[in-house]
Amino acid sequence: MLEHIELFFKSIFIDNMVFAVFLGMCSYLAVSKKVATAVGLGAAVIFVLAVTVPLNWLLDQYLLRDGALAWLGPEFADYNLSFLSFILFIATIATMVQLVEIVVEKFSPALYNSLGIFLPLIAVNCAILGGSLFMQSREIATLGLAFNYGVSSGIGWFLAILAIAAIREKIRYSNVPPPLRGLGITFIITGLMGIGFQSFGGMLTGGSEEEAPVLEKTAAAKVEEVEVKENKKEIDEKEISYNDAINK
């Protein structure tokens, strides 16, 4: 339970998709002129991330990672298909987006209309692929955590685009110098918002250290003990061989 809460908080605020790793910038910059559309896109991103990250987790777990094919039989245990992960992940994402679009169009035309072009656009949003790849590289342990990771990093992206859309609505009448109008000022705002989000940088690291020092100490102590023993053995052996040599 605790690790779920930690992962949730961490992926929303600390490893925020926009402010910590700068992913999904294209749609973040392009679709953040109005709050209403930003909310639509953000909701769609949350939804797609929540679906694709667990799916890709299954793919990774049972198909792609080193030794994942062991369930087929012992002769497959040596295969490592992780070089295929990009292509399979993006295929999953594209398929899922298409499927979701068809389903939503069929069953909820109102939602479909409100999402409009954003749903297909999401297929090429790098935050989505990034979510799956981070899931892979951070070695998220269970399906539940993968789902959690998808939802929470989506929420982080949602918060970012919501905040910048509100700010852009607020500064619409500001006297921004002409060369900076539009994208220029948006980039500057994003940087400044990044400073604000820095408040969470490095947060909770104390949480893992809480138990870590004890473990580390024991581990270090064990290593030391082993080393000492080995050294003793070596010294003993040397002495023995030295004595042997003398005796001979």
Binding site: V35, L162, A163, A166, I167, E169, K170, L192, M193, I195, G196, F197, Q198, S199, F200, G201, G202, M203, L204, T205, G206, G207
Partner: peptide, 29 residues
């Protein structure tokens, strides 16, 4: 919260205010 949980910034008040400055337009909206 930042004071307690973020060992790097015990003086984290200014960051909290900056963060809320970022979200103030959203709240207003």
């Amino acid at each position: 919260m930042i004071r307690v949980f973020n060992p790097a910034y015990p003086e984290g008040v200014f960051l909290a205010i900056l963060l809320m400055n970022v979200f103030a337009p959203t709240i207003d909206h």
